[in-house]
């Protein structure tokens, strides 16, 4: 789906008045680029911290001391200092995959409102469905690489993760339909503006869609009801068994990419579907400081939610995954139906 010119126009009007002189426009472009880069740096820098905070929180909830929230950074530094090793059977896909996995969440972050409420210059490259494809490329390459490595567990993990993703896809599509229906556009920035400004209170359909989206996000990022990220048992792993054959900087890129994937998908959940306030209206230093601070606050709240979910729920049997994802599909579907009735 090509991004709309209508959306673009709408935002010119929504923005701080049309100042059409060239100098101003030039400043605008520069500020846009700076804002974009800052948003990407925030994603790069904070993603491992989110992972660390979740681990620490889970340990604390189980009365353990647990690792410091900064542990993922130390892991990454250690891994980057080590040599890479590749299995002799692997083809170029195995060597390329870490870069793809690392790059796709960054590309995705350009398309979504990380820090700014108004879209930056690259935001119209793809809408929600398109950005879903972008984030899907990473998982696709992880699966290919896992099978390419020739390891048994890699193949097992790849097959299971395809199983989960293929069941999660219908929910994603229905969620996109529903938000597109409510807001009249599928570019994340448009959606976020409409859901944010159209009604102050939470409507049932909105809540259902947000719940369904969180359920599939947890499934897609290898979180607990589906996959235990702390599991040490090869036979029960989904996500981590795909990374078994990686070492050194490759593994670091894979893990960093995985952390960023969780981070950016949660950003979509928080800033588009649940709680957009706090986003910067314009590219200025104070507005961005506020935006980063609120993003950190929201992320802490989301991390707390994930900690509670992961501590309260046991991993469900693999053959019951269709029930979990079927449930999320039904939630999204009812959200869609109620949104069409509620208008």
């Amino acid at each position: 789906m090509a991004p709309d010119h209508e959306d673009r126009k709408a935002f010119r009007e929504l923005g701080d008045g049309a100042s059409l002189d060239r100098v101003h426009l030039g400043c605008h472009v520069l500020a846009d680029a700076v804002g974009q880069v800052v948003a990407l740096l925030v994603v790069l820098a904070l993603a491992p911290l989110l992972k660390g905070v979740i681990e620490t929180g889970k340990a604390r909830l189980q009365s353990r001391r647990g690792p410091s929230p900064l542990q993922p950074y130390r892991d990454l530094r250690k891994l980057f200092g080590k040599d890479r090793s590749t299995t002799p059977d692997a083809s170029f896909i195995f060597r390329v995959a870490p870069y793809v996995v690392f790059a796709t969440p960054i590309a995705f972050a350009v398309l979504i409102p990380v820090l700014t409420a108004a879209p930056l210059s690259w935001a119209f490259m793809a809408d929600m469905v398109g950005s879903g494809f972008v984030i899907g490329i990473g998982g696709f390459f992880t699966n290919l690489a896992a099978m390419d490595s020739g390891s048994v567990y890699g193949g097992l993990g790849a097959s299971r993760s395809r199983f989960v993703s293929s069941l999660a896809e219908p929910t994603f599509i229905v969620v996109f339909f529903a938000v597109g229906f409510i807001s009249g556009g599928t570019v994340p920035f448009v959606v976020n503006q409409t859901l944010f400004t159209s009604s102050a209170a939470i409507t049932p359909s909105h809540a259902l869609i947000a719940a369904a989206f969180l359920m599939v996000v947890l499934a897609e990022t290898g979180r607990l009801p589906i996959d235990n990220p702390n599991s040490a048992q090869e036979l029960s792993m989904i996500e981590s068994s795909r990374l078994f054959e990686y070492a050194g900087s490759d593994q670091a890129l894979m893990e960093w990419g995985g952390a960023m994937k969780l981070f950016v998908v949660l950003v979509v959940w928080l800033n588009v579907l649940v709680f957009p306030p706090g986003l910067a209206g314009a590219v200025t230093v104070p507005a961005f400081a506020v935006a980063i601070a609120t993003l950190v606050g929201k992320m802490l709240a989301a991390a707390f939610l994930i900690v509670v979910i992961e501590s309260a729920l046991a991993k469900i049997r693999i053959m019951r995954v269709p029930e979990y994802l079927g449930g999320s599909f039904v939630l999204a579907f009812l959200g869609l139906v109620l949104s069409t009735l509620g208008r």
Binding site: R320, P322, E323, G326, F329, L334, V337, L341
Partner: peptide
């Protein structure tokens, strides 16, 4: 099966609406 029951339930609620 349970997933079938869920989907049938969704279809039935659509029929209700």
């Amino acid at each position: 099966g349970f997933p079938t029951a869920l989907l049938l339930g969704a279809a039935l609620s659509l029929a209700g609406f």
